[in-house]
Nucleic acid binder design. Structure first.
Lengths: 165, 165
DNA sequence: CGATATATGTCAATGCATTGATATGACAAA
DNA sequence: TTTGTCATATCAATGCATTGACATATATCG
């Protein structure tokens, strides 16, 4: 296809005209960064809310629930966080054991249970907001508002690719 | 402090003039994306090299070693991958158990051991390159070359923030 | 009603990741 | 040589994450 002679570089799988073009070393570096950033986020995020013995995964659940007074079904949480049911169940068990959440029957669907914050959970979530905001501010100190938006958009695209690959 | 009337928005911790300005919901979304992307990468990455029973973490180690014929010390690998020693030791143990790597004494420093690919490890790494390239191509299909570079740079900055927060 | 699909949960195995405490062996400086 | 540091390793506890198989209860469709 397209024009003359043999390419100088060895063939790369899925090489397209512009989009879909992937250099191995660039991709490799990109996913290494993703890996490192994720581990750093969990490690230092957990440290910031260490006084409560919470983790980033737990605060992700609490944050999702705090925005929805009615609560969320397990199915909704799975789709929101993109976790396996078995994994999420374990996280919810730990949160329930500390009385931060409760599982109540969905009046509209007997199969479903609504997960929602308990009063204690709301108090803890409110108290954790401060160290979380401080963590966010520190972690994003090197990025301006426009860059944060850009990073969000690029990770959205990456997520799309990672879901279908 | 600075000027007139009461701010319309509730105060956000660490609000600065331009840099270091962080809106909670933007940051929250950003770290959720990071969380999701990382999980998707591990899940689907492992699936792509499932024929070898390998994981993304393992291929990160193999890839690092493949680029360095002399091998790397554990300390180097820890700094490269940003993992705890205990965690990395376990990954190396699994790789060694399959005879993909070997730990040899560093002739220049008796304390140190050089980790390097075995012959079998080199063969497996060479064979895994293809499914890994296919994974990279699929995952990055939605991003052009410029966007990949941009994403790399933004994640570099994010990593910097996450290391010091 | 019966069959099917949906929503949740459980049990088990494996791997990744952290922290904290402890130990061993080798280098290096006092 | 003694002291201190560095590099590696181990043991233990806890939490996160996946897959696969199985169980139970409710809803829905035929």
């Amino acid at each position: 296809m397209q024009s003359r002679a043999i390419a100088k570089r060895p063939p790369i799988a899925g090489a397209g005209p512009l989009r879909g073009r992937v250099r191995f070393d660039v991709a490799n570096r990109l996913f290494l960064r993703l890996y490192q950033c994720s581990n750093l986020m969990h490690k230092n995020g957990a440290r910031h809310v260490g006084a409560y013995g919470a983790t980033t995964q737990q605060w992700a659940v609490l944050g999702a629930l705090a925005a929805r007074a009615k609560g969320m079904s397990v199915k909704d949480l799975i789709e929101f966080l993109l976790l396996s049911r078995q994994n999420l169940t374990a996280v919810l068990d730990r949160l329930e054991a500390r009385s931060w959440i409760e599982r109540v029957k969905d009046p509209e669907d007997g199969r479903s249970r609504l997960i929602r914050l308990s009063e204690e959970g709301e108090r803890v979530w409110a108290a954790m907001r401060e160290p979380i905001e401080s963590f966010y501010a520190g972690a994003l100190a090197g990025l301006g508002e426009a860059e944060q938006t850009q990073l969000n958009e690029l990770m959205d695209k990456l997520k799309g690719g990672l879901e279908t690959v």
